[in-house]
């Protein structure tokens, strides 16, 4: 396990690369998901307030 983490002396370079990939992919997933969620709920609220007034 130690030698695995050590990566033959290249630990910093290898693990930073993989960590960055993880961060970039996660942000690419989370931010648009959140934007879609927000837009959907904004439209829902608009719909509910307009039907609320009508009733």
């Amino acid at each position: 396990m130690d030698s695995f983490l050590h990566m033959g002396g290249y630990a910093f370079y290898v693990w930073t690369s993989y960590a960055l990939a993880l961060v970039v992919l996660s942000l690419n997933w989370i931010l648009p998901r959140r934007a879609l969620h927000k837009r959907w709920h904004a439209l829902l609220r608009r719909e509910q307030s307009s039907t609320g007034k009508a009733a």
């Binding site: 695995f4 033959g8 002396g9 290249y10 290898v14």
Partner: peptide
């Protein structure tokens, strides 16, 4: 990271390739 052997010239540093090249 686990199964592939180290490179005979670049040691373990070449494992960056598996992120770098597909990107």
């Amino acid at each position: 990271l686990v199964v592939a052997p180290a490179d005979y010239q670049q040691g373990d540093s070449y494992r960056i390739m598996f992120v770098h090249v597909p990107s």
